Every structure is written in structure tokens, then in C-alpha cells.
Computed example of a mutant assay.
Amino acid sequence: MSRKVTRLTLDHLDELTAPCRSCVFWQLDPVRRERVRDTHGAYADEVDAWVSLVLREWGSCGRVVLVDGVAKGFALYAPEAFLPGAASFATAPVSADAVLLTQVYVAPDARHGGLGRMLVQGMARDLVERGIKAVEAFGDTRGDPGWDSHQAPRDHPRGSRCVASVDFLGSVGFKTHRPHARNPRMRMDLRSSLRWRDEVEAALEKLIGVVRPAPKPSPERRSGELPG
């Protein structure tokens, strides 16, 4: 089974069947959401238009994870200026030096295999390469949203569940930056997080080298004998 994280494109969006595929809680302000909510397919069109806008004006704004070539999850992120829905949170605004991670979704049949962590790591590497220092996210203390509702999201994050759980964010390196009973704002300092992981991986490689048994001498070279 092959697993790969790559840049999110509009083609990938068309392949995703996630309930949050048509969620515009982050991308539209409450007034505009009300204007388009009764139009069939309008939410998905708005998401496509938003992705196109951000790609054009800021650059890559998402990652998608492919399992055997099939899209099984995605993550969206952008500067807060592109995400008017963020103003709904009591712990807003996002820090001036940070990008905002909004949605992280993995299909139910592909969960518990590390794909969510792969998406966050792919996002982190993208942002570090672009000189961005940190990423923040509004967490949800109610746990995994479940993604069991296909209804259009409401204006308030309590109704939308378009928010990653605090437990998930904590498991992939985020720390609470501004506490809140329902939606704390969490933060990952990208350079320190990636450097820490790289150091751990290097230490493990050294440890494996120490405990790996030495290769056995070939039968032709018994002790005390010279080749020839």
C-alpha cells in the first residue's frame, strides 16, 4: 500500500466525498453564507473559488493524502485574512506571525493509520520552506467531530464542528496558546517542531547503528588466515 502527501488541487477536491468538502464556515462571513445556503451545490462552488483565490494570491493552501492513488484526506490552511470565519472564535485573532490551519479530514476507512499526522507534517514542511514561523488552529474540546452529519454548517463553530479536536492537535505537536473551555487557540512553532523531530530521527539512527550486530566474517576468511 502506497501513501503519499501532495499539494491540494481543485482536481483533488472533486475526488473528496467528505462532509466538510462543502463546508464554508471558514471561507465566508455569516452574511455571505446566508446568501448562498439555499442554492444547490453553491457551498462546494464557493470552496473551489476560495482555493483558486488563495492559490493565486498567496500560494499552496492545502495538502491531500493519497492511498494507492486515491484521495483519503486533506488539510486546509491560509493566513487569517483569507478566513473570515475565524472571527467567530472567542480566542481570535491568530498571531501575526502564524498561518491558520482550518480543516483536517481523513476518511473513516483510513483512520488510525497516521494519515492525519502525515498531513500536518506535509503542511509544516511547506510552510517552513516559505519562511513561515508558526501555524495556529482553533481546537475543539469535545473530541473527534465524527463527521457524521451532511447538513450545511451553521454560523457558529458549535454547530459546524469544522474544527479539529484538541486531542488530535496535541498529538501532532500543537500546544495551547490561548486557553478556552470550548475552543482554545493552539500553536505549533514550526522550526522548533521540525528540528526536534529531525534530531529524534537522527538519534534513533545512531542507536540502531550501535545495537545492530556486526557482520559475520565470510567463510573464506577464518581467523588467522590471509586471502590469496
Rank of each mutant, 00 (worst) to 15 (best):
Q121F: 13
I132R: 09
S149K: 10
D11V: 14
P19Y: 01
G114Q: 03
S2T: 11
K4A: 08
P227C: 14
M1N: 05
E225M: 10
S95R: 11
M123F: 00
A75D: 01
L127D: 00
Y105F: 11
F25L: 06
V128Q: 11
D167G: 08
R185W: 00
V210I: 14
A49Q: 14
S192P: 06
V36A: 02
W50Q: 11
W50G: 02
Q151A: 14
D29H: 00
D68E: 14
G122V: 10
E80C: 00
R154L: 15
V70I: 10
C61W: 03
A78E: 02
V47A: 02
R212W: 06
G228M: 10
I132T: 07
P227K: 14
L119E: 01
W58G: 01
P215L: 07
K72R: 14
S95H: 07
L101Q: 12
A75L: 14
A152H: 12
L194Y: 02
G69P: 12
R63S: 09
L76N: 11
G143C: 09
S223V: 11
V200S: 08
P153I: 01
V128P: 00
A134W: 00
V135D: 01
L169D: 09
F82R: 12
L226C: 07
V128S: 12
L100E: 12
T9Y: 09
R197Y: 03
H177W: 05
G122D: 05
R222C: 07
G173L: 13
L226F: 13
R212A: 15
S165F: 07
